[in-house]
């Protein structure tokens, strides 16, 4: 079952880097020309990561994506201090306010600077809700992605390194791949929502559930990629050398194997982050995510669809937040893939 046909190349997996003409030319002289020759020598051989960063910088989309992701993350982390309106505070007098920019085309729109992006039908501030929602969405995305990477790397390394485990683990991976994920997610959400909510409180319970459900169902591609790479690495001379001086597996794996499979793991981590954010908002959109007083971007979008004809901004902002975040994460992944590929990097 684990043959070429069932794991096709990731989109663009083997593409070349963006045109490396002028960009590469400007890189060639080392940035520290004025420094002493020792420093230059050190710089030239300093680290692989510096090279990766240099190549990454030439990918304009990836760079923009990185800036946007940083901006969104910082905005969500520090937003509550900058914009001190509680996301759940009801301001019924000021319900259904339009965003302030609607004054541009409609002089007497109901809007107020106290709620720059407007309020919903209960008077909750949209900006504050977007910040709170972003915190949840990003937290779910990151934790679920980390969980998936952890499981995927573990399974992949074990299957690739220990021949005896290979058949069993890969058969298991194939089984999980054959499960229809979204229907099962919905069923699991339905089943375990109430027990977990009772055990950990409504928010933590659902958070644990969503994160583990997304993590447990999205590690398979990583496991396959890592397994393939580990199997190839095992045949290399440096592994043979390490083994011939008696390195046991528990030292071999963290020292020699893992650092060398880091790049495929990082690339699939970005894809995992993007799909975790999308899955969380899809669950919220289908009404099986977080409880309704607990905003996430998907939930905000879902709640706003009923009245989108009158208040399009309530759909637009959460939707844009999800789409732009996922887009930038995907671009970062694209750039990383090029930057981490040594065949491309040298050019």
């Amino acid at each position: 079952m684990t043959d070429a046909a069932s794991d096709p190349p990731a989109p663009g997996a083997r593409e070349a880097a963006p045109p490396a003409g002028p960009a590469a030319a400007t890189i060639a002289p080392a940035p520290a020309l004025s420094a002493s020759s020792d420093a230059r020598l050190e710089l030239a051989g300093s680290s692989q990561w510096r090279d990766v960063w240099r190549q990454f910088r030439t990918h304009r989309g990836a760079l923009l994506g990185l800036f946007f992701l940083l901006f969104v993350t910082l905005f969500c982390i520090f937003g509550p201090w900058l914009w001190q309106v509680a996301p759940n505070a009801l301001d019924v007098r000021n319900k259904d306010l339009r965003p302030v920019y609607s004054w541009l085309w409609n002089g007497d729109a109901r809007a107020s600077w106290s709620h720059p992006l407007g309020t919903d039908q209960l008077g909750r501030d949209l900006l504050a809700q977007l910040i709170a929602g972003g915190r949840v969405s990003l937290a779910v995305g990151w934790t679920a992605m980390l969980l998936a990477m952890l499981i995927g790397t573990l399974v992949g390394v074990l299957a690739g390194y220990f021949r005896r485990l290979d058949g069993l683990l890969m058969r298991f991976t194939d089984l999980v791949l054959a499960l229809p994920i979204l229907p099962l997610l919905l069923v699991v959400m339905l089943l375990f929502r109430d027990p977990l909510r009772a055990a950990f409180g409504p928010q933590t319970g659902i958070f644990i559930l969503i994160v583990s459900v997304i993590g447990v169902t999205s590690w398979m591609q990583t496991a396959r990629i890592v397994r393939g790479d580990v199997m190839a690495l095992k045949e290399r001379e440096f592994v043979l050398a390490a083994r011939s001086i008696g390195t046991p597996a528990r030292r071999m794996i963290p020292r020699h194997i893992l650092p060398n499979v880091l790049s495929p793991i990082m690339v699939s981590a970005t894809l995992g982050l993007a799909s975790a954010i999308i899955t969380e908002s899809a669950l919220s959109f289908l009404g099986l995510g977080f409880p309704s007083d607990f905003p996430t971007w998907g939930k905000l979008l879902f709640d706003a669809t009923d009245r989108m004809a009158d208040f399009p901004e309530r759909v637009l902002w959460p939707g844009l937040a999800i789409s732009l975040t996922v887009l930038s994460v995907n671009y970062i992944g694209d750039g990383l893939r090029d930057a981490l590929d040594p065949r491309i990097r040298g050019r």
Partner: peptide, 24 residues
Amino acid sequence: FVAMVGFSVPTFFTGVLLIMIFSV
């Protein structure tokens, strides 16, 4: 770019956006 946007923007957002523009 279009392909990137195509698989980054979730279908529930494109769908709602299209309804907003072309139906409403």
